[in-house]
């Protein structure tokens, strides 16, 4: 079963997302900030990362860039999640190396479609 790392500082979002994806059969691990996200991703090599963009310590763009630059983690698919929905968010995310982009609040069906497309 594919493994997914959720990097999200908002507790409720993290809780909801992890529970709903576990139910779909994914192997879930979580990180609460960008730095922890990078460490965990390098260590456990998940198949996919759901990366919130506005994260403390190290934001989502920086963390994504770091992961995409390293050989060991380059192949991990990353979907950026943002609640800002500012013009240009999408471009910024893809520019940082994200494989796809989704907005919060999460529409699970839509997100699952994107996950399946990448795995």
């Amino acid at each position: 079963m594919p493994s997914i790392l959720i990097v999200e500082d908002n507790e409720m979002n993290r809780d909801m997302l992890s529970r709903r994806l576990k139910r779909k059969g994914f192997d879930i691990s979580v990180a609460v900030d960008g730095q922890q996200g990078v460490v965990m991703a390098s260590h456990s090599k998940p198949d996919l990362i759901l990366m919130d963009m506005s994260l403390p310590i190290k934001d989502g763009w920086t963390a994504t860039r770091e992961l995409k630059e390293k050989a060991g983690t380059r192949d991990i698919k990353i979907i950026a999640l943002t609640a800002h929905a500012m013009e240009g968010d999408r471009q910024r995310a893809l520019g940082a190396g994200c494989d796809d982009y989704d907005t919060k609040p999460i529409d699970l069906k839509r997100l699952l479609g994107k996950i399946e497309a990448l795995l």
């Binding site: 409720m12 609640a83 609040p105």
Partner: peptide, 17 residues
């Protein structure tokens, strides 16, 4: 926008859960 999306999203999300 960010905060409201999260809080309103939690309402919808937990209800769906």
């Amino acid at each position: 926008k960010h905060d409201l999306r999260n809080s309103v999203g939690a309402i919808a999300g937990y209800s769906e859960i």
